[in-house]
Amino acid sequence: MSEAREWMVQWLRDAHAMEEQAETMLSGQINRLDSYPELRERIRVHLDETRQQAKRLRQCLEQLGEDTSAMKDFSGKLTAMGQAFSGFFSSDEVMKGSLASYTFEHMEIASYTILIAAAEAIGENEVARVCLQNLREEEAMAEWLGDHLAPTTKMFLSRDEADSGAAKR
């Protein structure tokens, strides 16, 4: 196995773990966004995309005769559970969640950009195609979140002004 292929396989495993982490993180957020129905719905849609992204990455690894990294997947999920749990006690959870999600989307965008370049460099066109599909979904989510940061902030602040503590979430 070439060194370039080994790197790409490692990065595919990292991306799979990243999607497992994203699934856990999004699942934790979605149940606490009743007062933000538009955000909740977009996260629900992206959660479905995230599950498909992980599945596609797993299939790429299998086609290469490789498997996912159970340790990386577990570590990512554990980190996400900690993030979700810590946000639960924050009165500005929706804002911290928005910030974390926007940041995480950009990390995913960078990861897929790297994977596409690696796959193209070693002639793994199917891996490049799958990663491009995942990249487009991540870019769309990042754009949506970016477009909605200001409105979400204003909604949060107006609810804070009204002193409706339960509605902040």
Rank of each mutant, 00 (worst) to 15 (best):
I30P: 00
I30L: 13
N31T: 14
N31S: 14
N31D: 05
N31I: 05
N31H: 13
R32D: 00
R32F: 02
R32A: 06
L33Q: 04
L33A: 07
L33P: 00
L33I: 13
L33N: 01
D34M: 08
D34F: 13
S35C: 04
S35T: 03
S35D: 00
S35V: 00
Y36H: 07
Y36M: 03
P37T: 02
P37G: 01
P37H: 03
E38D: 02
E38Y: 01
L39K: 00
L39M: 01
L39C: 02
L39T: 01
R40H: 12
R40F: 04
R40P: 01
E41S: 01
E41H: 02
E41N: 05
E41V: 02
E41D: 03
I43D: 00
I43T: 01
I43A: 01
I43Q: 01
R44C: 01
R44H: 02
R44D: 04
H46L: 10
H46S: 05
L47R: 08
L47K: 11
L47S: 08
E49H: 07
E49S: 11
T50K: 06
T50S: 07
T50N: 09
R51N: 14
R51E: 13
R51A: 13
R51Y: 07
Q52L: 12
Q52S: 10
Q53I: 04
Q53D: 09
Q53H: 13
Q53C: 02
Q53E: 08
A54V: 06
A54Q: 11
K55G: 06
K55E: 09
K55S: 09
R56I: 08
R56P: 07
R56T: 06
L57M: 12
L57K: 06
L57S: 09
L57Q: 11
R58F: 15
R58K: 14
R58G: 06
R58V: 13
R58I: 08
Q59P: 07
Q59I: 10
Q59A: 11
Q59K: 09
Q59G: 15
C60M: 10
C60Q: 08
C60T: 14
L61K: 15
L61M: 09
E62M: 05
E62P: 05
E62K: 12
E62T: 08
Q63S: 09
Q63I: 03
L64T: 10
L64F: 13
L64P: 15
L64W: 13
L64V: 12
G65L: 02
G65V: 02
E66S: 05
E66Q: 06
T68D: 00
T68M: 07
T68E: 02
S69A: 08
S69F: 02
S69D: 06
A70V: 09
A70Q: 08
A70G: 09
M71A: 12
M71K: 08
K72E: 11
K72G: 15
K72S: 14
D73V: 00
D73W: 07
D73R: 07
F74S: 12
F74R: 08
S75E: 11
S75I: 13
S75G: 11
S75V: 13
S75T: 10
S75L: 12
G76L: 11
G76A: 05
G76V: 06
K77I: 03
K77T: 02
K77H: 01
L78N: 10
T79E: 10
T79L: 13
A80T: 11
A80Q: 09
A80E: 10
A80M: 14
A80S: 10
M81V: 12
M81T: 06
M81P: 03
M81H: 09
G82R: 12
G82V: 08
G82W: 11
Q83K: 15
Q83G: 04
